[in-house]
């Protein structure tokens, strides 16, 4: 495995399976009374968050703490960054504090890649702009595998705001590596121009794809990133691309519904679908801690140069 985890595309199939298998063994740690392992004692993990995030940050924090690492949380608000410090100077500061790993979330695509050139420790991308969010893709693949078994040949449909979604891009790359067949469904305005080069199919008709799907992953409509009108109205979007009860009924009986969160209930996903037994949305959060433990262990648990 590489020293950093910046893109899901950097992972070979063996790497991805190693992370998933490691997570499978670590899942039992969350079920026992002492949820802690001594493995990363004395290692320091810095959570460097330039964008608001609750679930990803606390997920990484919980993962690092369960492995006994020391965790330093650094959020851009109220820090030296709001006084105008550059990313490089922030990185050098963290370096001087002896960070063994930096978990970075940044609004600019490519920020983790730059950071990796400036620090000696491992860099873990926790979401950069509209680029990638590899640990989300890993936890999604882990959640699917726990429900469905091996992913080879599985039909996975990702629906919604693909354009602004780093989750979609990471998932397409990782699921492709793992041998699943991915179909993206979105309004043409919410697909990136380069989507033709991605290892996946594209469709504009959700109703046609649903009956053939083993997994339907709904994406959040990222209004905060929308500075233009990508669709006429929320109501129309919801009618054409939302997963409501009727569409849910068209899915195969054992197909599952996923959502990376946070959800807009009633917009891309109906409340009763989100709360159904075939929804993995709550599991995904628990699996997030487990998969991040696996990633931190594999990056930091052995010898580091």
């Amino acid at each position: 495995m590489k020293r950093h985890l910046i893109s899901a595309g950097d992972l070979t199939k063996d790497d991805a399976l190693l992370i998933l298998d490691t997570a499978e063994e670590l899942a039992s740690v969350s079920e026992r009374s002492i949820k802690k392992l001594p493995t990363l004692r004395g290692r320091t993990v810095v959570n460097l968050f330039f964008e608001d995030s609750t679930r990803t940050r606390i997920s990484f924090e919980a993962a690092a703490k369960r492995l006994s690492a020391d965790v330093i949380n650094f959020s851009a608000k109220g820090s030296s960054v709001s006084k105008g410090e550059s990313l490089k100077d922030t990185a050098l500061t963290l370096e001087a504090m002896g960070a063994d790993a930096v978990v970075i979330r940044h609004g600019a695509s490519g920020a983790p890649h730059r950071l990796a050139n400036w620090v000696h420790g491992s860099v873990v991308n926790a979401g950069d702009g509209t680029h990638e969010h590899p640990t989300q893709a890993l936890l999604d693949a882990f959640s699917m595998r726990r429900r469905l078994g091996a992913l080879e040949g599985r039909k996975i449909t990702i629906v919604g705001d693909v354009l602004h979604s780093r989750v979609a891009r990471s998932n397409v790359l990782l699921l492709g590596t793992l041998g699943a067949d991915v179909t993206l469904v979105a309004p043409p305005t919410l697909l990136p121009v380069s989507v033709g080069t991605w290892p996946c199919e594209v469709s504009y008709d959700l109703d046609a794809v649903l009956p053939k799907s083993d997994v339907v992953m709904m994406l959040r409509v990222q209004k905060e990133r929308m500075n233009a009108a990508y669709f006429p109205s929320e109501r129309e979007y919801s009618r054409r691309y939302g997963l409501d009860r009727d569409r849910f009924a068209k899915m195969p009986d054992d197909a599952i519904v996923m959502h990376p969160g946070p959800m807009n209930r009633g917009m891309e996903i109906a409340a009763e679908v989100a709360d159904s037994a075939r929804s993995t949305i709550v599991e995904q959060v628990a699996n997030g801690v487990t998969i991040r433990m696996a990633v931190l262990y594999l990056l930091l648990g052995g010898e580091t140069t």
Binding site: M1, L18, D21, T22, E25, L26, L37, P38, T39, Y297, L298, L299, L300, G301, G302, E303, T304
Partner: peptide
């Protein structure tokens, strides 16, 4: 995860 020589080698796969 409890070994005392973890840092002498690359991270190992876990047993069951």
């Amino acid at each position: 995860m409890y070994r005392d020589d973890l840092r002498l080698r690359p991270a190992r796969p876990l047993g069951h």
